[in-house]
């Protein structure tokens, strides 16, 4: 990534972090619902999404804000959706857990763990049959990698040569259970071999490394026509949902991963390389804070859906 791209990535990661922390604060204040955040995973979202092309599609899950904002979503509309307001991407009917934004190519968001894995094959099949260029990226976690649908999806995508970038955001936590309690292996990407496809594991807290790995994976999909399994190793710094005191988390492990914070790492690098000054960083952070404040103001002013919306969009 060029210095300009890295600065843009930092801005997006700051926006995502501020958005996640803002929704957590709204929940604490009784102004919003509990959300599932992905604080600490911002480099994974921004690194992968920045490597996609405009025609590509994305399937995501209940921790979707990073993918949406990295794709260019308007934080006013994501915030409105989380607060269940009419100006949200789904008219306020999703809330935080299944936000799709078809206009951005973020489709069929499912909060059922592994649900996105079952749907992505069909999205990719439609693209392939219509001979539309591009690929479909599917974000899921190490928890979904324990579902049977992971096996079914990757196996079928391999058999049918579907252009899918499987992105396993291995954040070490499956709701309240540590990944190490659920699998004998350390690298989920090693499973790619079982399906006859390629895979790779990358440091998910290094946005430049994630971006490079995702670009390479995307190029492999275009070259081979086969799917690719990219594992992005990261850590969920907040709880499963808000509020969650994380009493079940080993403090030493949490501390280790806090010291690998992807945003702090990127800031340090850009400052050390002279691409950013303390002053320009402060300005960037202030700009992000203004965007989030404006998003909250917008969302809280947006009307709630009228009660007739209870029964609309059920049948086509």
């Amino acid at each position: 990534m060029t210095p300009e791209q890295l600065i843009h990535a930092l801005e997006q990661m700051l926006l995502i972090r501020a958005h996640e922390e803002a929704t957590a604060a709204l929940q604490r204040d009784g102004r919003g619902p509990g959300t599932c955040t992905a604080v600490g995973q911002e480099a994974a979202a921004v690194g992968v999404v920045s490597a996609l092309s405009a025609e590509d599609e994305i399937l995501t899950n209940h921790r979707s804000i990073g993918h949406l904002l990295a794709r260019g979503a308007d934080p006013r509309r994501t915030m409105a959706e989380i607060l269940g307001r009419q100006d949200g991407y789904c008219g306020g009917k999703s809330g935080s857990l299944h936000i799709s934004a078809r206009e951005l190519g973020v489709v069929l968001t499912s909060t059922i763990v592994g649900g996105e894995l079952a749907l992505v094959t069909g999205v990719a099949l439609a693209r392939k049959m219509a001979r539309r260029p591009g690929i479909v990226a599917c974000f899921f976690g190490d928890g979904a990698a324990c579902q049977g649908r992971f096996h079914e999806s990757v196996n079928l995508a391999g058999v049918w040569d579907l252009p899918i970038l499987y992105v396993c955001e291995n954040n070490q936590w499956q709701a309240f259970v540590h990944r190490k309690e659920t699998m004998r292996i350390d690298k989920i990407a090693s499973r790619a071999a079982a399906y006859g496809i390629e895979g790779a594991t990358v440091d998910g807290n290094d946005v430049a490394a994630v971006h490079a790995a995702a670009r390479e994976a995307r190029a492999r999909i275009e070259a081979t026509g086969a799917p690719f399994l990219l594992e992005v190793v990261t850590y969920r710094l907040r709880g499963h949902f808000e509020p969650d005191d994380q009493a079940y988390v080993d403090p030493a492990e949490l501390d280790t991963w806090r010291r690998r914070d992807p945003i702090a790492r990127l800031k340090d690098r850009l400052l050390a390389e002279g691409h950013l000054t303390a002053q320009s960083l402060t300005a960037l952070e202030a700009s992000v804070a203004r965007s989030i404040a404006a998003a909250i103001t917008f969302a809280e002013a947006s009307p709630v859906p009228p009660l007739r919306e209870l029964k609309t969009h059920v049948y086509a």
Binding site: G115, L117, A118, L119, G122, V123, L125, A126, E152, L156
Partner: peptide, 22 residues
């Protein structure tokens, strides 16, 4: 098309394809 013997992914693939124009 034949598929693997896996009803979940058959139905999921259908749903994804249906939402994508098929």
């Amino acid at each position: 098309r034949n598929t693997p013997l896996a009803e979940g992914i058959i139905a999921g693939t259908a749903a994804g394809a249906a939402a994508s124009g098929l």
